[in-house]
Amino acid sequence: MSKKENIKEEELKNEQSTSQVEENQEIEADVAKEEPTAEELIQAEKDKFLRLFAEFENYKKRTSRERIELFKTAGQELMTSLLPIIDDFERALTHIEEDKEAEELRKGVLLIYQKFYNTLEQKGLSKVETKAGDTFDAEIHEAITQIPAPSEDLKGKVIDCVEKGYKLGDKIIRYPKVVIGQ
């Protein structure tokens, strides 16, 4: 081999070894970057802890709200089954008022009805107020039939309330059944 060729080979070897050294340094730098420092590890764990703490706080608030809602409507099934009894009392009072001779009976039935209804009110039961002339609202009323409106201003309004509605807290447990004008 000639001298020039030897020099070229040496230059090539030097270039290759230099590029290999640079590559090795880059790889070592990447490896060093991949290993997080102690401060980065602490910050990551702190972040994870804060997220877990916030998630737990949200869980506590949600279960607390659900528990309160459950207590408010826990007696819903019982209240719903007692509503026909209230209806029967009201019908009885209506019929007894027509009979003038049964004044003492009316007073006794009225007393029992008032005690019964007051007890249910203390447990959160309330009437959904509906009267003739109110605007019909499908979210509050249950329309059972439509009849021709006796006057133009009663179209789309409540004409008669057939069955009273009741709420337990803020939740309607029985919608008032109404007749609306057409």
Rank of each mutant, 00 (worst) to 15 (best):
K115H: 13
T37F: 04
I96Y: 11
E11A: 12
I42Y: 06
E15D: 12
F56E: 10
K107Q: 14
L83Y: 02
S126D: 14
T18G: 10
K33M: 02
N6R: 10
A32N: 15
E45H: 04
E104L: 12
N118Q: 15
T119L: 08
V109N: 06
K60C: 13
L125S: 13
I85F: 04
Q122R: 11
G124P: 04
D87K: 08
Q76L: 13
Q114A: 12
T119N: 13
Y113V: 02
K60T: 11
E26Y: 06
R62M: 11
A38R: 06
E142C: 00
L93G: 07
A92F: 08
T130V: 15
F89T: 01
L50P: 03
E55D: 06
I140R: 00
A132D: 12
R51T: 09
Y113H: 14
D30M: 04
E104R: 07
I27P: 05
K46H: 06
K115D: 13
L110G: 06
R51E: 14
N14Y: 01
K46L: 14
D30E: 06
I42S: 09
T119P: 02
S81P: 03
I112T: 15
E101Y: 03
V21L: 04
I96V: 13
A143Y: 03
S126M: 11
L125K: 02
K60V: 12
V21C: 02
F53C: 08
R65P: 00
K107M: 08
L12M: 09
S126T: 07
I86M: 07
D87Y: 06
E97S: 14
S17V: 10
D30W: 11
A32Q: 10
Q16W: 03
Q76G: 13
A143V: 06
K123D: 12
A32W: 02
G133K: 03
V31G: 03
A29P: 01
I42E: 08
R91N: 13
V128H: 06
Y117H: 13
I140P: 00
E57R: 06
E45M: 11
Q76T: 14
E57K: 07
D47M: 01
K8A: 15
L93F: 02
N118C: 04
I27K: 04
K115M: 08
T119E: 15
L82G: 01
A92C: 10
A32P: 02
F71M: 15
L120D: 01
E129Y: 10
T63K: 14
S126A: 08
E139V: 00
Q43K: 09
D137R: 00
F89N: 02
T73M: 05
E26M: 14
S17D: 07
V128M: 07
H95Q: 09
D87F: 02
I27V: 14
E121M: 15
E104H: 12
I96L: 15
T135Y: 02
F49H: 06
V31K: 07
I27W: 04
F71H: 08
E57V: 10
I112A: 15
E77Q: 07
K127G: 00
A74F: 04
E97F: 01
L70E: 14
E39M: 11
Q16R: 08
G133Q: 05
K46N: 04
K127L: 09
L70Y: 10
R106V: 01
F89Y: 15
D87T: 05
A132F: 00
L110K: 15
F116H: 05
T135D: 07
Y59H: 04
